[in-house]
Design a protein around this nucleic acid. Structure first.
Length: 135
DNA sequence: GCCAACGTTGGC
DNA sequence: GCCAACGTTGGC
């Protein structure tokens, strides 16, 4: 079981859109490192849904329900998608500002690799952020 | 709108 | 294989 963080600009594709649509295809990834992470995802893995640019906060958790297959929106190259469904909405959103200030989260990919859109999250980080959102 | 931090491309 | 030029992401 692995944990991930997926970024999306909410004016393009938001967590609420996914909630309404019940299920989503994570397409359009055009970065090798992000793609490699997509390929490592397994059914049942959980991922944070982060809103970049607008909000700059983790808003929910999603579950991987279908492992990678070729991205139908790609005209060339070896790009892939996974399918996801909403798992839960966070009671309290966790902002980038909070994460940056939190001494327990200084090594999180969101800060270390700010441009990567699909990254892995340590179980401790995942559990810690979930606990924060409940507090 | 700007810019830092990357990633990609192409000339050499 | 190196590196300059350029493009993109995302925070500010």
């Amino acid at each position: 079981m692995n944990y991930w963080l997926l970024k999306s600009e909410p004016d393009v594709y938001s967590f609420d859109t996914l909630l309404n649509e019940k299920k989503g295809i994570w397409d359009g990834v055009r970065n090798y490192q992000a793609r490699n992470n997509l390929k490592l995802m397994r059914n049942g893995d959980l991922a944070f849904f982060y809103h970049s640019n607008i909000g700059k906060e983790i808003v929910g958790v999603i579950k991987i329900i279908k492992e990678y297959y070729p991205d139908p929106t790609a005209t060339d190259g070896d790009w892939v998608v996974v399918e996801v469904e909403p798992f839960c909405k966070l009671k309290k959103q966790i902002t980038l500002e909070m994460i940056k200030k939190d001494l327990n989260l200084q090594n999180i990919g969101l800060i270390k690799q700010s441009r990567l859109s699909v990254m892995s999250i340590k179980k401790e980080e995942f559990d810690y952020i979930l606990a924060l959102s409940e507090s």
